[in-house]
Nucleic acid binder design. Sequence first.
DNA 1: TCTACGGTGATCGTATACGATTTCATACTC
DNA 2: GAGTATGAAATCGTATACGATCACCGTAGA
Lengths: 221, 221
Amino acid sequence: MTASKSELAYTVIKDKILSGAYSPGYRLVLSTLAGQLGVSVVPVREAIRRLEAESFITFERNVGATVAGIDPTEYLYTMQTLSIIEGAATALSAPLITQPDIDRAREVNARMRACLDDFDPVRFTALNLDFHSVLFESCPNPHILDLVHRGWNRLKALRQSTFTYVPGRARESVAEHEELLRLLESGAPAADVERAARAHRAATLDAYLAHNANDGVPSPY
Amino acid sequence: MTASKSELAYTVIKDKILSGAYSPGYRLVLSTLAGQLGVSVVPVREAIRRLEAESFITFERNVGATVAGIDPTEYLYTMQTLSIIEGAATALSAPLITQPDIDRAREVNARMRACLDDFDPVRFTALNLDFHSVLFESCPNPHILDLVHRGWNRLKALRQSTFTYVPGRARESVAEHEELLRLLESGAPAADVERAARAHRAATLDAYLAHNANDGVPSPY
DNA sequence: TCTACGGTGATCGTATACGATTTCATACTC
DNA sequence: GAGTATGAAATCGTATACGATCACCGTAGA
């Protein structure tokens, strides 16, 4: 059950993009990568095309691949789409979530709250994913879950942790999490849960837009 | 500007799957396809991996590719996801849709109505896509549009035209279209438009489930 | 009759080689 | 000096070749 070399190339390149070793705009040359990885260009090419399909890189015929840049408009599209998908995912999960699930989520949220002073954005973002992952474990529709993960991946690729840039948003976020848990505990209607979950993601986007209003970030509306 | 052979292979194979020339379960062998297309196996392999990523086929290492089967559960997941995505897409488009757009959509819907007697499912389905495409032309978020098209593609691959199987659903659908147009014309709030558009797709799914209740179609709920 | 085993063919996975296309620097013309 | 032709270098695109892995099937033993 050895992993294929194509899989290896995919994993390594993706990790280097996510970790920042390959910054946006970095030029990926097939033969160079092949040499570094100790494989031929064929599996590297396959990995590149796969990463392109997942929007980690852009690829132009006969020209080559470059790590996808941080595009504020792209960030905006992704956040808007995520607000819709996460809203639906939370609503679908709601009737299946048990009290132990909620307890676990609340515990994660407590760790996030503990993080608020001497703020660590990386740790906070990781805990944030944990929090929502707990809620989504019950989601009965795997397609929707897949879309959630795609969105998260895209955000990672954009490396836009809004919490990093908008002061105070992290604290708001923790409060909204608690509110969401109360809704779920009380057996609120799915429509209410969906509205709250959607608003939670949208608020992060709005905070980002308001904070960068003078920085030439375009609005898609 | 000649298309790459990989692109050619992708298009040809995908078309054959969508048209039914390659039925679900059909075994796709790289070398055979390469021979038929007059290219080598490398671009065919790339096309296959791409089709796999888009769920048209399944692929197993060292074993090969087979055309994805018709799975009622998969159909259900897809329809549920589409109802959410299409609802959001319609709501986002709503404020940007002009009266000429609505007139065009209404004209398409009239052609659908004309189709109702001596019913042609293929033509009806095509017109149905046209109808919604008109509404989505204004959608400001390309990611969401992309998800809509993915869903439509998957339905084509499943070749599950619900209209074919549920008597009377086509007529209901035409009526719901008219209702949707009235909402858009009256400048109804985005939330109302979203609810209506989502319900439109969900109603098709519900009709399918009700109609096949005794045929062992599993429920995801 | 059933199961374990091993051989054989089919198919995929990857390396290598070479042709096709693009890019960029340079020289040339107006 | 601006714009354009030209050539070489870099890079991708694809063909071919061969090794690796798996499924299938016949056989032997219990």
